[in-house]
């Protein structure tokens, strides 16, 4: 399905709603049918998201996080700071963890992006997801997608990580509930379970 222009979509609905106001405030009267917002330049890109080819016409200023959340409805990726400080938005780009809030969507053209939604194979949780449950890793859960993606990247490169390696891999992902030790235990346990295989052997999200 081709990407519907969000601005056109919003333009129609918002104008309709504002136009139908029975008792609009004075501020709104002047703008009864506000023209659609000016679009920024757009670029058509093709990329792989969770194993599936997607064609998206992105505004050049969209971040990868925004494209995923607002235009591909993949809201599992969270935005905690929008400036590459907290790690909640971590996704994998060609297998490497990146902060998707600080990476433009257009740069992801022809590349492969993995998000938290691609971890489980249908109803079968990824071993690191199961380990997170077993070790009571999440509390508030907002940072968890990013923790999972950093963990996945580590396990792909280092299938049997030590606790120190797990700590180092998760250190770019802030967790204010601070269940860090449970996260580390979970990652080590996921590595110890035999079901982790090197990245090339998995077909995530297929």
């Amino acid at each position: 399905m081709s990407e519907l222009s969000r601005r056109e979509f919003l333009g129609t609905t918002a104008a309709g709603i504002v136009g139908s106001s029975a008792i609009p405030a004075p501020d709104v009267v002047a703008n009864q049918s506000p023209p659609a917002p000016v679009s920024a330049p757009r670029t058509a890109i093709r990329l792989i998201v969770n194993g599936r080819e997607r064609d998206v016409e992105v505004e050049d200023r969209w971040t990868l996080a925004e494209m995923l959340r607002d235009h591909l409805q993949l809201t599992g990726t969270k935005v905690g700071c929008d400036r590459g400080e907290c790690g909640a938005c971590t996704v994998l780009l060609d297998g490497a963890p990146i902060y998707s809030c600080s990476y433009l969507a257009v740069w992801a053209a022809s590349r492969s992006v993995e998000t938290v939604e691609g971890l489980a194979a249908g109803a079968q949780l990824h071993p690191v997801q199961q380990a997170f449950i077993d070790h009571d890793a999440p509390q508030g859960g907002f940072c968890t997608s990013g923790q999972l993606m950093s963990a996945k990247a580590l396990l792909a490169a280092t299938p049997r990580p030590t606790a120190d390696q797990a700590r180092a891999a998760l250190t770019g992902n802030l967790c204010r509930c601070s269940n860090y030790n449970h996260y580390v235990e979970a990652v080590v346990a996921a590595g110890a379970s035999s079901s982790i295989v090197p990245e090339s052997g998995r077909g995530d999200g297929q």
Partner: peptide, 21 residues
Amino acid sequence: RAMKRVEDPRLLQGIATYVDD
């Protein structure tokens, strides 16, 4: 008992709904 959280599966699959979602 150290029961596992029923909240976790939705948090871990990116299918929980926060306000921004």
